[in-house]
Design a protein around this nucleic acid. Structure first.
Length: 613
DNA sequence: TTTAGGG
DNA sequence: CCCTAAA
């Protein structure tokens, strides 16, 4: 059985070809040894499917391998395979990032995975330069898998590596060049007009490009709502030049390093990094999340663009989803905020994990104006031009990521609109993971034709994208803070204000973190693995770990029992994870007091446990 | 501030 | 999750 798990349509002006990644799922019994085979292929315009050469396949495999989790998650058939050797992995498993879980689940997989990571590191090193040439990207050819690398190759070094920070700062300047101005600069007056309109919801007759640019910039910085604006600008960008790819890549590199690089050590003058970083991350996150819908929208978009180019100044109509979400979030804000704030004020001035860059504490109502231009009426979110909040920083960050996220869509923008921390919802996270590959590649079931190998070009760029974005995703699952509303239960009680059910991937991160830094180093783990989660304080981690511990041991007796019963409304934690937890607990001899005494360090968990239970 | 533990 | 004590 073979399935195309990822398809990337050419983003160029003419969609000549489509890159596709085909997964060959051997449904034989040999899955464990050889679970998946990736095949690269290109689909030309007429739909002909051209398999990649072996070389290309190899490269792709390396690159994709550690990303595979996402693909697994996304494709049903993949999921099946993913779970094939472990029944305890139920459907619940699907929606989450099982990259790490896979490791737990199957030792062989783990081995492969680690290897893959190493290989990837090497290969990327090789590939990157070439990629550089192709795209002429300014970004330094850095190790793409730095994140993973730090995670897997330097697992036991508790202290952060200065080198990462160094790298981080070394390439940082690169993107600073990529300001929004540049992109706006490349727009014609006409385009600027369109942008302007999208931004402010009204037309302008001003011909002065400078003025227009400044206006638009201000509008953007002011509103935080770059949704339409950004989109349009980007569209124009795409139309105008193919440069967008560069931007994207740079951005990705940047993201990569934001994770590993931000070690807190040399934060002296780099205050900007965190902000831009998280902003970008959010974008990535959303980007990956919504990429599917974006892609399905692609045709329409192109049409719209054409219209635009023909002087038919049409503004892209906001998607229904966008509108809905904006208003939804707004209403949520209103209902939730007062309670929350009142409560927090009651418990003292202490602010919880409120992100520093939580601009615009109060959400803005979404005002839309009806625009009848271009024949069909469109609702355009109207953004006031009055500046409030901290525009400058805001502006910069916005402009910074503007050119990159062509996949950035409603959801993302919606968040930005809220002025919230760049983060996505918990549930959203899962949904997104399930729904779309982080790569923004859509999953289109194609029937693979066993064809001859053909030349396959321009792979590196795509591959880079894959790895990058996938990489991102593994750590970029973030949550929006502040969806926390008190839910008055029927019983009269008020349910917890902030209660964010732990995501499976979060749990995994936690477990991994503990395995790396040891239980107790919560702040470390928080900084590293949960850098993007503004909620989840170190205390939370600790608590969760405590729970996991409890769960893991409690669940032991019923080991064979499939999963956990559904009695807990929360997500059942896959047995493998619990196993891992127990293992770690044992290793760090932080087990339940009873077992504390074990003299032999290397004792196996199971021995002990079996003795007690 | 961070950890640990009780509520 | 929240709150606190202790380091």
């Amino acid at each position: 059985m073979e399935t195309v798990v990822a398809v990337e349509e050419g983003e160029g002006i003419n969609q000549e070809s489509t890159s596709a990644i085909v997964i060959n799922c051997s449904d034989s019994s040999n899955q464990i040894a050889d679970p998946v085979i990736y095949k690269l292929a290109r689909v030309v315009g007429d739909g002909i499917y051209i398999p990649a050469t072996d070389d290309e396949v190899m490269k792709a495999e390396d690159l994709i391998d550690h990303k595979s989790s996402l693909h697994f998650v996304l494709d049903n058939s993949q999921t099946t395979i993913c779970n094939s050797n472990d029944d305890t992995f139920g459907q619940e498993f699907m929606p989450i990032d099982c990259e790490d879980l896979l490791a737990f689940e199957d030792p062989s997989t783990q081995g492969e995975r680690s290897d893959a990571v190493v290989d990837t590191t090497v290969d990327l090193g090789k590939l990157n330069p070439r990629f550089e040439e192709v795209t002429q990207s300014e970004s330094t050819p850095v190790d793409q898998s730095g994140d993973e690398k730090q995670a897997d190759l330097v697992p036991r070094s508790a202290e952060s590596e200065p080198s990462m920070s160094t790298i981080c700062s070394s390439w940082k300047p690169d993107f600073s060049k990529l300001k929004g101005e540049i992109c706006l600069d490349n727009l014609s007056v006409k385009e600027l007009h369109a942008t302007f309109k999208a931004t402010f919801g009204r037309e302008t007759s001003v011909k002065d490009k400078q003025w227009l640019k400044r206006r638009i910039s201000m509008g953007l910085s002011n509103s935080c709502d770059v949704s339409l604006t950004t989109f349009n600008i980007e569209s124009n960008e795409i139309e105008k030049k193919d440069k967008l790819e560069d931007c994207n890549n740079k951005d990705e590199n940047r993201n990569k390093y934001s994770f590993t690089g931000h070690e807190g050590g040399n934060d002296g003058g780099d205050n900007k990094i965190p902000v831009g970083q998280s902003q970008t991350i959010q974008m990535e996150d959303h980007f990956s999340g919504i990429s599917k819908s974006v892609q399905s929208d692609a045709p329409k978009r192109h049409i719209a663009l054409e219209d635009d180019n023909q002087g038919n100044k049409r503004v892209r109509k906001p998607t229904r989803r966008y509108i809905e979400e904006v208003s939804e979030s707004d209403s949520r804000e209103y209902s939730g905020r007062p309670v929350s704030s009142a409560r927090s004020s009651g418990s003292g001035p202490r602010t919880r994990v409120r992100p520093v860059h939580n601009i615009q504490p109060v959400s803005k109502p979404l005002v839309t104006r009806h625009d009848s231009l271009g024949g069909s009426g469109v609702e355009i979110p109207y953004v006031s031009r009055i500046r409030r909040g901290r525009p400058r920083e805001n502006f910069m960050s916005l402009m910074k990521f503007q050119p990159y996220g062509m996949g950035m869509t409603a959801r993302l923008v919606n968040k930005a609109h809220d002025g919230h921390d760049p983060q996505s919802d918990n549930d959203i996270e899962n949904q997104e993971l399930k729904a779309t590959p982080a790569t923004g590649w859509s999953l289109q079931p194609l029937i693979k034709e066993p064809g001859e190998n053909e030349e396959y070009s321009e792979q590196s760029a795509d591959l880079n994208n894959i790895s990058d974005e996938g990489q991102m995703d593994s750590y970029a699952d973030v949550d929006s803070d502040e969806n926390i509303l008190t839910v008055p239960t029927a019983k009269g009680g008020m349910r917890r204000k902030h209660h964010r059910p732990w995501t499976l991937s979060e749990v995994v991160k936690l477990v991994e973190g503990v395995s790396r830094y040891g239980a107790g180093r919560w702040s470390e783990i928080k900084r590293i693995a949960f850098a993007t989660c503004s909620h989840r304080t170190s205390v939370d981690l600790k608590d969760k770990w405590r729970n996991l511990l409890r769960a893991s041991f409690a669940q032991l007796p019923a080991e064979k029992g499939v999963q956990n019963s559904k009695k807990h409304s929360s997500i059942p934690i896959p047995a493998p994870i619990l196993l891992r937890v127990r293992e770690l607990a044992e290793m760090q001899s932080q087990v339940s007091p009873e077992v504390k005494f074990d003299g032999h360090s290397g004792r196996n968990v199971n021995d002990i446990r079996s003795g007690f239970l």
